[in-house]
């Protein structure tokens, strides 16, 4: 009942660099985001490969040889793991971004996610075919 202003709202600051340790769901989100480092690094590596190819056969052979080093193999395995994780997490949320309504009902999320996995498999197969693996 005072005439003077008694309000003094208190603002709790969000810790800028440690907020994601607060909840498991934030950790999962950060893990998904961190995958981009490996995917980015792998993309760079591919670009280097293309550059080496343009520089001539010897350079390209040397590049391929370097890829066979244990460090490179470990990196590739890591990059593969992270990109699969990234892909899976994105595919799993595609029903949110791309809902499909047929008549009154929405397609179950599993169908949309499944379609993405199927597309992924088909594309991968096509790439492998073109690469002459089979």
């Amino acid at each position: 009942m005072g005439e003077k202003m008694s309000r003094k709202p208190y603002v709790r600051e969000v810790p800028k660099y440690s907020w994601f340790f607060r909840r498991p769901r934030y950790m999962r989100y950060m893990a998904r985001e961190v995958t981009c480092i490996f995917i980015g690094a792998y993309t760079l590596l591919l670009l280097v490969g293309v550059m080496r190819l343009s520089q001539g056969q010897a350079e390209y052979e040397a590049f391929l040889a370097a890829l066979r080093s244990p460090v490179s193999v470990v990196f590739h395995l890591l990059a593969l793991g992270f990109s699969v994780y990234n892909t899976a997490t994105w595919f799993n949320v595609t029903p949110k971004a791309l809902p499909v309504q047929i008549g009154e009902e929405f397609l179950p999320g599993g169908v949309i996610t499944g379609a993405h996995y199927l597309g992924w498999a088909v594309l991968s197969l096509a790439v492998l075919l073109m690469a002459g693996v089979f």
Binding site: R23, R25, Y26, Y29, E33, V93, P95, K96, A97, L98, P99
Partner: peptide, 23 residues
Amino acid sequence: CSFVGACSEVCPEHVDPASALQQ
């Protein structure tokens, strides 16, 4: 929005705001 998805996980009415934002 960077699609953390937490909004939809906590929504008591199952509104799924994350889906709205991605759309």
